[in-house]
């Protein structure tokens, strides 16, 4: 449990906030794909901590960004926090994404709140050819397009309603790219159906794929076994745990259903 000072709160859209934490400790230790388990105040309406990914790290000024969407009582309380206050965080927790070697190429595929952890991943691979494919519901829900375009060599956006970029799913953008490109790794984070399609596409073509899974959490550290996720185990499956064994997994290991 660490107390980290909030230096800025920014509203990125109707319901998406960026919280900037001043923390030399986090800037030194946080890796892309890891998350913080944050206490959302002392209300018994949001008793448990909430897992939120590391979105970006600025070593220069010692700050770390997390970006979250208001979904329910916990994120609502987080959104009410003010600069100057301290956030009570556990972490960085979980296993990070494994980077592609310098000189290689990577495609990140994100959907909605699943786009957030991919920003820092792209920033940490400066010598890799980076493509960002981002999916959102509608133009109004698109956030951090500028940040992504500054760390990606190429960025494309898809919206469900066609109000910005490609009209349709982000998985269609990936499918098109994979017809002509063969990245060293595809990274995916977003809704389950999207992650399943991307994983199947990549496995079918023999392209390595890393997925960042979500599950409701209790402890966040591997002690309570509530954050179960199906993992291949021979011909059968077993349950692994998103907080400790993940959240990033090799796509080949996960059973989507």
């Amino acid at each position: 449990m660490h107390r980290e000072r909030i230096v800025r709160m920014e509203r990125l859209s109707d319901d998406i906030f960026r919280m900037v934490l001043q923390s030399g400790r986090l800037t030194e230790s946080a890796k892309p794909g890891q998350f913080l388990n944050i206490r959302c105040g002392h209300s018994l309406q949001a008793y448990l901590r909430r897992p939120i990914s590391i979105c970006d790290v600025h070593a220069g000024d010692g700050t770390v960004d997390i970006v979250f969407q208001i979904r329910g009582p916990g994120t609502e309380l987080l959104g009410e926090m003010k600069p100057g206050e301290e956030a009570d965080v556990m972490g960085p927790l979980g296993n990070p994404f494994k980077p592609v070697n310098p000189g290689g190429s990577a495609i990140v595929v994100g959907g909605g709140i699943g786009t957030f952890p991919l920003l820092y991943l792209l920033r940490t691979m400066p010598e890799v050819k980076r493509t960002a494919l981002l999916g959102f519901r509608t133009a109004g829900a698109v956030v951090m397009a500028k940040e992504f375009s500054s760390v990606a060599d190429c960025m494309e956006i898809a919206t469900d309603d066609g109000s910005l970029g490609h009209h349709g799913f982000v998985t269609e953008l990936l499918e098109k790219r994979l017809r002509t490109e063969r990245p060293d790794c595809v990274y995916v984070c977003g809704p389950m159906p999207m992650m399943r399609i991307v994983t199947e596409q990549c496995i079918g073509m023999g392209i390595p794929v890393q997925v960042s899974m979500e599950q409701r959490m209790g402890c966040g550290v591997g002690a309570c076994l509530v954050c179960a996720c199906k993992k291949r185990d021979g011909d059968d499956f077993s349950y692994t745990h998103v907080c400790r064994e993940g959240p990033v997994f090799d796509g080949r290991d996960i059973v989507f259903d």
């Binding site: 018994l44 309406q45 949001a46 008793y47 448990l48 599950q215 409701r216 959490m217 209790g218 309570c224 076994l225 509530v226 954050c227 179960a228 996720c229 077993s238 349950y239």
Partner: peptide
Amino acid sequence: RGNRPPRIAETPGGILN
């Protein structure tokens, strides 16, 4: 191997597991 997820739900001041 335990039960199928989700395995936790939060309720006011408590959790169901």
